[in-house]
Design a protein around this nucleic acid. Sequence first.
DNA 1: ATTTTTGCTTGCATAACACAAGTAATAAAA
DNA 2: TTTTATTACTTGTGTTATGCAAGCAAAAAT
Lengths: 151, 151
Amino acid sequence: MKKMETKFRCNCPFTTALDILGDKWMLVIVKQMLMENKQTFKDFTESDEGIATNILTTKLKQLEAFGIITKTKLPNNNKSNIYLLTEKGLAMTPIIVELGVWSDNHLRDFNPNIVNEGGIELLRRDKAEFTRVVEQQYREKLATIATTGLF
Amino acid sequence: MKKMETKFRCNCPFTTALDILGDKWMLVIVKQMLMENKQTFKDFTESDEGIATNILTTKLKQLEAFGIITKTKLPNNNKSNIYLLTEKGLAMTPIIVELGVWSDNHLRDFNPNIVNEGGIELLRRDKAEFTRVVEQQYREKLATIATTGLF
DNA sequence: ATTTTTGCTTGCATAACACAAGTAATAAAA
DNA sequence: TTTTATTACTTGTGTTATGCAAGCAAAAAT
């Protein structure tokens, strides 16, 4: 890999966030972990979005470097690596939720195939509750893993 | 310009939003319009982020094509083009606000130079109020332009 | 009439991403 | 225990996105 160093364009907090997240894949991967239970390399490669394996490797390394995810090999020695969101990663939920709200309201003219499943009714009815539920479910998953060591 | 057609990776609303906004510049430009009063080609080229003029041209066209901004030439025949956010563009405020919150909380280790000005205290104290104020100020600006035809 | 400003375009370099193939380590199957 | 399959990558090669410098026409300022 050539370049892991991130250059920050300026000292604006918004732009700094986009220096890290402003690309085609970072937020998509976090979304997949948060709402689609993706946690292994294979899980990500099999997703609808269809990320290339070399890009996935790069992005997972970046997410880990920024403390957004962790890479773990399990005690019950599975060979698979398990990728999990950290608290910093979980704190990105509101960003993703707002992207979903805006998309739901304004992007159907451009992509008429946008699905209405996956709890989008709750997202429309109560955004804050949707966010809470998503975060809580992920925390429960983390707790289960911590307790049982299983997936 | 070669390719204006946007390919959507899948039917996920979140991913569809990122098919449009998931790059290095789209959200930065909207932020500049919303919070830094940028509205002319020159304004954008002179910003801290330092976008190249060819990229700026491309991105402004995309934002216009997606109905996020409008391009206007003023009645009091200025030669400058004026770029303004539409309602769809204004509706992106919560996305940008959440990026700012996350950045403020989690990115200072990576970019220690992140500034604390620009109403970030309000952002910390009352996120919803911050969002409301930003949107309202922009609407007032739009109203002034509509009334007086001046900038 | 001349100069400056604005909003671009063009050409060329590098970085990001896409696609196909290959590989080492583990694990499951025979 | 040898074979086969799976997982998590790497490598090679192309295409798209972005960066940088220069140029340019139309309007505006001088």
